[in-house]
Computed example of a mutant assay.
Amino acid sequence: MAAQSFTPPGFLNERPDCIQEVFLNPGGFHFGGADTRIVTLLGSCVSITLWHPRLRVGGMCHFMLPSRGVIPEGGSYDGRYGDEAMKLFMGHIMRVAAEPEEFQAKLFGGANMFADIAQRREANVGERNIEMGLAQLERYGIPLIAKHLGGESHRKLMLDVWSGDVWLKQQGVSPSEMARARGRK
């Protein structure tokens, strides 16, 4: 599948001469300026991208689970959890003296990577991650302007902070990968 762009309408892409590329592993979080590109790979995990069109700052989180239940005292937040990843975003939003509703959010991921296994559980982790991402954006009043959620395949995601563009490439899981994941050869 070709890469798909989730570009803010009417915005000129002014690529900087020098780019800092950051790769997020699961649980990763990064917030940066207009010289930043953030990349990650998703399965059942979810990424939220936030971007401020006037300040040209933004970030991405890559959370694995909706919540661990209790957030520790003192603000030692863990990006592996959706509710805590949003707390990390809120800290950066405060540091740049902006309001949450001035940012644009895009939400990606939450694939059901092992459909036959997930059917035996109350709800699959991808669905729960999607629900948490949507709930957090609503809680903080951040407008969601694009999303690409669910399904049963991997996604490669790239945010260009200088423009707010988010690029997505989605790949299906091959039958041999599914058989290995199920313990068959």
Rank of each mutant, 00 (worst) to 15 (best):
V125Q: 13
G126P: 10
G172I: 00
A98Y: 01
A115Y: 04
G109Q: 12
M132N: 07
E138V: 00
K106F: 01
M178N: 03
Q170M: 10
R120S: 12
M158Y: 04
V161I: 14
G164M: 02
A97I: 00
N129H: 00
W162I: 05
H154R: 15
I145C: 07
Q170W: 02
E99M: 05
S153N: 13
S174M: 10
G172E: 06
D165H: 12
W167N: 05
A98Q: 11
L144R: 10
G164P: 07
V173W: 03
E101F: 07
M90G: 03
H92S: 08
V166I: 13
L159P: 07
Q119Y: 06
E122Q: 09
E152R: 10
P175F: 08
S176M: 11
A111S: 15
A179E: 14
A98S: 15
A111E: 02
S176Q: 15
E152T: 13
P143C: 12
N129W: 06
K169N: 10
A123I: 03
G133F: 01
S174W: 03
E177K: 12
K147N: 13
S163N: 00
V166Q: 05
G150T: 08
N129I: 00
W162Y: 14
P143K: 09
K156T: 10
L137Q: 08
D160R: 09
K147Y: 09
E152N: 13
V96L: 08
I142K: 04
G109Y: 04
L168Q: 14
V161D: 08
Q171H: 08
I93M: 02
R139V: 02
F108H: 06
Y140R: 00
G172L: 06
A97C: 11
A118I: 05
A179L: 15
E138L: 03
V125R: 14
R139H: 11
M132F: 06
K147P: 01
V125L: 13
G172D: 04
S176A: 14
E177S: 14
V161P: 06
A179I: 01
M178W: 01
A146V: 07
G133Q: 06
L157W: 02
D116F: 07
R139Y: 03
G172F: 00
F103R: 05
E177F: 10
G141S: 03
A123Q: 13
L137R: 06
L168M: 14
A123R: 13
Y140G: 01
L159C: 13
L157Q: 03
S153A: 15
I117N: 04
N129M: 00
R95L: 10
D160H: 14
E99P: 03
G151M: 00
I117E: 12
N124V: 07
G91C: 02
S176W: 02
R155V: 05
A98F: 02
L107F: 10
G141M: 02
E127M: 12
S174N: 09
V161Y: 09
G150D: 08
R139S: 05
K147D: 13
F103I: 05
A179C: 04
F108P: 03
V173A: 10
